[in-house]
Simulated assay, not measured.
Amino acid sequence: MLGFKSFRSAARTIAGIELLHMIKKGQLADNDNYNSDFDKFLGVLP
């Protein structure tokens, strides 16, 4: 692996990985607006 060119890109990648793990574990608040885990993921993105 070549690594990341900036700290910002590394931090965002790690944050995304942590978010996916939270979704997989079901740790996000369930709302009736979300139909699937992928919908939750899209709803959290800026």
Rank of each mutant, 00 (worst) to 15 (best):
K5F: 02
N31A: 08
D32I: 10
F38V: 11
K5W: 02
D32E: 14
A10Q: 14
Y34C: 09
L42A: 11
R8P: 00
A29W: 02
F38Q: 09
E18A: 13
L45C: 15
D39W: 04
S6W: 00
Q27C: 06
L42R: 14
D30M: 02
L20C: 11
G43S: 15
L28I: 15
G16P: 00
L19W: 01
E18T: 07
K25R: 15
L2H: 08
E18C: 08
D32A: 13
G3Y: 03
N33D: 12
M1P: 06
H21E: 11
M1R: 10
H21F: 07
F7R: 10
V44P: 00
L28Y: 09
R8L: 09
K5Q: 10
D32G: 04
G3I: 05
N35W: 03
D32M: 06
G43D: 12
A10V: 02
S9E: 15
L20P: 00
L20R: 12
A15L: 14
L20V: 07
N31D: 13
F7T: 05
S9D: 15
N33S: 11
D37K: 15
K40F: 03
I14R: 12
Y34T: 04
A29M: 07
D32L: 10
N31T: 14
D37R: 11
D30Y: 02
D32W: 05
R12M: 12
L20D: 08
A10N: 05
M22G: 02
S36L: 03
M1S: 14
I17K: 10
N33Q: 11
R8F: 06
L19M: 14
T13L: 03
D32Y: 04
N33T: 07
L42G: 03
P46A: 10
Y34F: 15
I14P: 00
I17G: 02
H21M: 06
K5M: 04
Q27E: 15
T13V: 03
G43P: 02
Y34L: 09
F38W: 13
L20Q: 11
N31V: 04
R12W: 08
L42K: 15
D37G: 14
G3Q: 03
G26E: 01
D37L: 09
Q27P: 00
S6I: 01
L28M: 14
Q27R: 14
A29Q: 12
E18Q: 09
A15G: 10
F4W: 15
K25F: 05
T13W: 09
P46F: 04
K24E: 11
S36W: 04
M22I: 00
F7V: 10
M1H: 11
G26W: 01
K25N: 12
H21P: 00
G26Q: 01
K24W: 03
L28G: 01
D37M: 06
T13C: 09
R12A: 08
A11Q: 13
L2T: 12
L45S: 12
L19R: 04
A15T: 13
S36K: 07
S9P: 02
A29I: 10
F41P: 00
F7P: 00
I23Y: 01
G26N: 01
S9A: 14
L2F: 06
T13S: 11
S9G: 05
D39I: 04
V44R: 12
G3L: 06
G26P: 01
A29K: 14
I17C: 06
G16V: 02
D37S: 11
F41G: 01
N33V: 10
